[in-house]
């Protein structure tokens, strides 16, 4: 398959036609950014700040936040690192939906109204857009997110067919950004719920043909705060910046628990 495509040498020269012109000039526009601030060192309660900025067509919400931080108000605080959607630092509530600030282009939002940005819901807010991630990672750790294989390891790799590998591919994409868990209405009121992210990461091992501890993980998630708390509202699937079918993964874990008990 891959061999065929590579061995067929593509043409040395092609007519690029229209496509050679690329994206063309980048337009600029005004946006109003409205951020929910919180800093217990300055005020007891949260407050809203608004800034109007000139931004460009390729700019993301993160660029707008940076513009504020670097040019207007240095005290605006948020986490960010890679800035292209793979590190999972900057999950936040943008216009009421959980998104990564670095993957949300301003031009895709309704710029005629202020763009609201808040910290993700359900986790304790520490300052501005920063929340305490410890409860989130605690749930992650409890589902034993690591390969457990009791048979002696072969000298070379453990074999796995491409089909078996494909079985859990979707859930290996998780970046632990917490967008799913903090979009879940159940988690908002019940912080003890394991949450979609922990279940997704359990799914990644439960359906890995090399893993022997699927039963233990299913037992953990059979808890009253486990998969049965899921109400299939699909908020998590909608929020996932990696396009993981989170609700489907949760359903698969439920099915696995039931089939196991039968």
């Amino acid at each position: 398959m891959s061999t065929a495509t590579v061995e067929n040498e593509p043409a040395s020269t092609v007519d690029l036609g229209e496509s050679g012109d690329g994206a063309g000039a980048i337009e600029s526009f005004e946006v109003t950014l409205k951020v929910r601030r919180y800093d217990p060192e300055r005020a007891e309660d949260a407050w809203w700040d608004e800034w109007t900025l000139t931004m460009y067509g390729t700019d993301r919400v993160l660029d707008a936040l940076h513009k504020v931080k670097w040019e207007i108000d240095g005290s605006l605080t948020f986490r960010r690192s890679c800035a292209h959607g793979i590190c999972g630092s900057d999950a936040m509530r943008i216009n009421g939906r959980n998104r990564l600030a670095c993957k949300t282009l301003l031009k895709d939002l309704d710029t005629s109204k202020p763009i609201t940005v808040e910290a993700i819901k359900g986790l304790p807010i520490e300052k501005d857009l920063i929340v305490d991630m410890e409860p989130f990672f605690q749930s992650y750790r409890e589902i034993m997110p690591f390969l457990i294989n009791n048979s002696p390891a072969p000298t070379a790799e453990r074999l796995q067919s491409p089909e078996d590998r494909e079985r859990f591919d979707d859930t290996t994409k998780c970046i632990l950004c917490a967008a799913c868990t903090s979009s879940c209405p159940v988690f908002w009121t019940d912080g003890q719920y394991f949450g979609p992210a922990a279940i997704v990461n359990a799914h990644r091992f439960i359906f890995d043909s090399r893993d022997d501890a699927g039963d233990m993980r299913l037992e953990v998630l059979n808890d009253k705060e486990g998969v049965w708390r899921c109400r299939t509202t699909f908020n998590c699937t909608d929020a996932c910046p990696r396009g993981i079918e989170v609700t489907k993964a949760i359903q698969e874990v439920k099915t696995a628990i039931i089939t196991r008990s039968l």
Binding site: S2, E157, L159, P162
Partner: peptide
């Protein structure tokens, strides 16, 4: 190093025989 990672659980792409796939 690669085999260590595989044993730690890294989901490499596989060849039809189930071995770790490799590309250019």
């Amino acid at each position: 190093a690669v085999l260590d990672l595989e044993k730690m659980g890294l989901p490499f792409n596989r060849t039809p025989e189930g071995k770790i796939d490799q590309r250019r």
